[in-house]
Amino acid sequence: MTNVLNEWAFIGVFFLLAPLLPSLPIAIAALISPRKPNAIKQATYECGLETVGDTWVQFKVQYYVFGLIFLVFDVEMVFLFPWALAYQQLDFFAFAAGLLFIFLLTDALFYAWGKNALEWS
């Protein structure tokens, strides 16, 4: 039990340190680099043209659809990982169960395909 928590303590410390290590050179650079801001230097760089209007505009719904399809397959993966992990200890029934699970989702993929939801326009 303590052993398991020790593993996670390692991961926890890693999670804290991982963003700090790359921040170190950024901090050093901030200390020794010159700092002479002016309005033109800090202007938004859009190929030399002045920026028009608000950047944070509404975006296409298509990205959202791809996001949703991705989410569904991501959740599918979460179910398949334990299945694959235990697979060698199980019988043929497990293969059938996994096959049905994957088949149902492949259905969804082909539905999306047929409805042209996978077309990038």
Binding site: P25, A29, I32, K36, Q42, A43
Partner: peptide, 15 residues
């Protein structure tokens, strides 16, 4: 390269 990058000005765009 690292030395050069350390001495480069860090520009944050307005907004």
């Amino acid at each position: 390269d690292v030395l050069k990058l350390l001495t480069k000005e860090d520009i944050t765009p307005t907004g």
